Computed example of a mutant assay.
Amino acid sequence: MTGAATRAVLAGVLSTVLAAASVTADPAHLSASPAPRSAYVAVSVATVWTTPQSPRPVDRRALTNPVDIRGWLSDMTLDQQEALTGDNLNQTQALFGDRVLVVREQGDWDEVVVPGQPTPKDSQGYPGWIPKAQLTIDVSYGALKDHAPFAVADRGVTTWLYRDSALSHRDLEISTNTRLPVLTRTDKAVQVFAPDRGLEWLDAETVSVYEKPTDIPHPTGVDLVRYAATFVGIPYVWGGVSGFGIDCSGLTAAAYQVHGITLPRDAGPQAADRRGRPIDKSALQPGDLLFYSHGGKDPVNPDDMYHVAMYSGNGEMIEAFDKSAPVRITPVRLDEDYWGARRYL
């Protein structure tokens, strides 16, 4: 953006903020309105819990601001990681700057839906609870998010926000697929507006900048595989959607979403999505999704669909299988649980 364009965007933000001045930013105000109100994720990754009572003592690093996802994962034993799945403790995650809709509050928690993650559980987005400390009501950021060009982190599983255009002072590590509104750029850096942090900078080599979401180029299957392969070696975590830790459908959803295609969040709804065309196992191409079910081949039962992977070519697939291994490239399994493949391009 030129300097004049930056000033125009900021002027528009000021107008929006003034128009919203009658709306208090006090989180307690949220419960006074029957309509969901926007808030924004203010940590690198916010875990969306099933209830405010779901977190265990070992989950404390995932509840703070700043958050420590790597520390959280390293604190857990394999049995404690397994309990995330078996006890249905967490639902999904949301990335820094993502909008959530606050439905109601309970003490230090907000009940939310995540609009960017389609699910049959709620027509507005994926439901659950996030600690208030990890959310912000930042109307300046919200106005920019809706109207400014944006940068999407799409090279490498994580990148950094910097305090300066020389990229010498790191501020916050953020995940791939994070999107932030852009104000201006130099040859080596992109200036963005970050929730609760104001002006920050990103390394231009780690992001792509678009005027609007529809400007994202339509991917090829090879594009999807190349992106998914960057996660190889990243830890598995149930409900994960980030470069710090991810699950099977989080991986496939992220690979498509970073390329401008939003799939449902979970494996069963991904398989049932009408945009997906059935593909015979003899005709697989890179980028196709492979599904595994405990309940037979047809029809799709989301409760039976337990796994999804991406075909990468040469009889192999990329998958985040379970807690026993990080994201890996492995031979395609055409076993009794193989349900079928879908192509979305």
Rank of each mutant, 00 (worst) to 15 (best):
R70Y: 05
A255E: 01
R61W: 12
V222R: 05
D154T: 11
V58Y: 10
A25L: 14
V58W: 10
R37W: 06
P181K: 07
T92D: 15
G97M: 06
V308M: 15
R61Y: 07
V209E: 10
D335V: 08
V207F: 13
F96C: 13
L172K: 01
D138H: 13
I69H: 07
V327P: 00
V258G: 02
D337N: 14
L334M: 08
V113N: 00
T262Q: 03
G250F: 04
E336M: 06
G12P: 09
T178R: 00
S74Q: 06
P217I: 14
T262C: 00
V23E: 15
I174W: 04
F193Q: 07
T330S: 08
S44D: 15
G86F: 14
E173A: 03
P36D: 10
R274K: 05
D288P: 08
F96S: 13
A8P: 04
K297D: 10
G198K: 13
A229Y: 10
R179K: 11
S175F: 07
H147P: 00
T47H: 15
A189S: 15
Q270D: 09
A148K: 13
H218E: 13
G240T: 01
P195M: 13
V332R: 08
G295S: 04
V232T: 13
I130E: 12
D215K: 07
P195W: 10
S74A: 03
Y338A: 06
W160H: 07
N65P: 00
P302Y: 08
H147C: 02
Y311D: 00
V209S: 07
R226Q: 14
